[in-house]
Amino acid sequence: MIAQAAFELRLLLRNGEQLLLTVIIPMALLVGVTLVDAVPLGVPAGAERLPVALGGVLAVAVIASGFTSLAISVGFDRRSGALLMLATTPLSRQGILGARALAAMAMVAIQVVVLVVTAALLGWRPTPAALALVPIALLGTAAFAALGFALGGAVRAEATLAVANAVFLALVAVGGTTYPADQLPAPLSSLVSLLPSSALADLLRWSAGAASTTSGALPVDAVILGVWGAIGAVIAARTFRWR
């Protein structure tokens, strides 16, 4: 499974479109959100915005790799028979999906490093809580990967492509990622805070050192993320089709 995960990571890193989605877009978001005042973060533009921006953008990066990219690749690999081809090797079916999730996690680890370095160049200074960035990002990846398998394993490849990208854009825009749920208008705000994207972003913002996140809400966020992951896993286990 490790060998398969390493192989898939190599393919991911070689794929330009994937890198645009998983690395370039989050990097551009980080720089933009930090420097441009138009995005309401509740904090003025400049270095003070960095913890808030970094947490949100890391969540976007996790969703890009763990959900969007994974769902799309699963959808197309189902159609092309690539998953079936692997299923004829000694890799078990769980191993095939596990390797894919593992590759997404490795990709996320790389994204975290790239984004943290970018943030540091912009003037971000980590607090001890930053040690939790990678573990939180990986847990988030696991939860979103479960949702990615649920989508990519059940829906036609083209539909997966459309839905995965639409969901990605929606979560970037109003999913509580790029800017926190509490900055949204009232009825939307409480709804959005129940989304896994918002929960993950809250956890990452806390870890990045954003003071605005009340740490009392963190366990709730962790539970929300876990529940979404479990829902994804149950749906995937019931509906995943190999072709």
């Binding site: 393919l11 690999d77 092309s80 028979g81 690539a82 998953l83 079936l84 081809m85 692997l86």
Partner: peptide, 9 residues
Amino acid sequence: VQEDGLPTG
């Protein structure tokens, strides 16, 4: 298998 299922990348 007939639809070879080779990863294109």
